[in-house]
């Protein structure tokens, strides 16, 4: 309460002297770019803008809960704010956002944040009334890490390719590869020991976890992104006085999403440079030609069809959603996932 007294004194006589504690669950380590690019700056921003009325406690390293259960945890009030990975909530009302994780839906977080907000507001409404959803964003685009050279799609035939979910599975099968399921903890060793030949992974993460050591052939393709949605516990939000609610809604929440977007954009460039540097002697860092890009995009279609089927099963109109998604991309001038 010391903070509140010193900073609000004299400024707002009606101010409630109560300090609201806001617990943030950062399921990444404290050394991750989420921590220094997003959560820490947001903490400062919140505490400054609310004149210390809201005190932010950041808990790093999944100590309040894992990334796989953010939806359940936020609803249950295990913590007040965290980052939700849409794909881990495939079977929840967040499902519509997972369209953004399909092959070549987006090239990066800037695109994702431009499109997903409108898309989500249109299709992801039901069942989400009991939490506060901030503007969506996404990870960087995944690149292909391979232990052997990959000159063209033909080189991927019968390669053991790591897959982490349904849509990756469909994409890999379309490419002619053999999908192998390996946990994300097992990727490094899997590549090193030849259990898998390739893995799609975020270049930022792949650089940090040194996947280029066992897999020095890296193809820059931004095959997919993972949509991310910062979320807030509703009870916490409603416990705030109205002016603070408004502040969060109009300023602080969008700022958090923007911080994540910026973080990914700036880290990505750095990581790509680092990766290129690191494999100079032992491997190859390649960008796709226009023709190859088209070719890869074509193979992504299978994953889209699977998603549409899933959407129908969940009671949405999958085809309509996909069409609308394409329309939004086109309107905003972004490339289409496939033709």
């Amino acid at each position: 309460t010391l903070v509140a007294c010193s900073s609000t004194a004299g400024k707002n006589e009606n101010a409630n002297n109560k300090v609201y504690e806001l617990d943030v669950n950062n399921w990444q380590p404290s050394t991750h770019h989420y921590a220094y690019n997003a959560w820490e700056p947001w903490k400062e921003l919140v505490e400054e803008k609310t004149d210390g009325q809201v005190k932010v406690n950041i808990y790093h390293g999944s100590s309040l809960g894992k990334s796989s259960s953010v939806y359940q945890d936020i609803k249950g009030g295990l913590y007040d704010v965290s980052l939700l990975v849409a794909n881990y909530s495939y079977d929840t009302p967040f499902f519509p956002y997972t369209i953004g994780s399909l092959p070549f839906a987006f090239e990066g977080p800037a695109e994702a944040s431009a499109i997903l907000k409108e898309f989500g507001e249109k299709y992801a409404k039901e069942g989400l009334e009991d939490l506060i959803i901030m503007p969506p964003t996404s990870t960087d685009g995944y690149d292909l890490f391979s232990t052997k050279p990959v000159e063209s799609i033909a080189d991927l035939k019968n390669r053991k390719m790591r897959m982490s979910g349904k849509s990756e599975n469909a994409f890999i099968e379309a490419l002619g590869g053999t999908p192998v399921s390996i946990t994300s903890e097992g990727i490094y060793e899997g590549l090193e020991k030849g259990m898998i030949d390739t893995a799609f992974y975020t270049p930022i993460g792949g650089e940090a976890l040194k996947y280029y050591e066992p897999a020095p052939y890296i193809t820059k393709m931004a095959v997919l992104v993972n949509p991310l949605i910062p979320v807030m516990n509703k009870e916490f939000f409603e416990s705030l006085p109205e002016d603070l609610q408004k502040l969060f809604e109009e300023e602080l929440n969008p700022a958090l999403s923007q911080l994540f977007t910026n973080s990914y954009e700036s880290e990505l460039e750095e990581s790509h440079n680092q990766l290129e540097d690191n494999v100079k002697k032992r491997g190859k860092f390649t960008s796709l030609s226009v023709a190859d890009t088209e070719d890869y995009r074509k193979h992504g279609k299978a994953a889209w069809e699977l998603w549409i089927k899933d959407a129908d099963q969940k009671g949405y109109n999958g085809q309509e959603m996909a069409d609308e998604f394409f329309r939004m991309l086109e309107k905003a001038g972004y490339p289409l996932p496939y033709k």
Partner: peptide, 13 residues
Amino acid sequence: SRLFFSPIVGDIE
């Protein structure tokens, strides 16, 4: 199966 034939989809699950 993975070594001699093909990987089983969903083995981890």
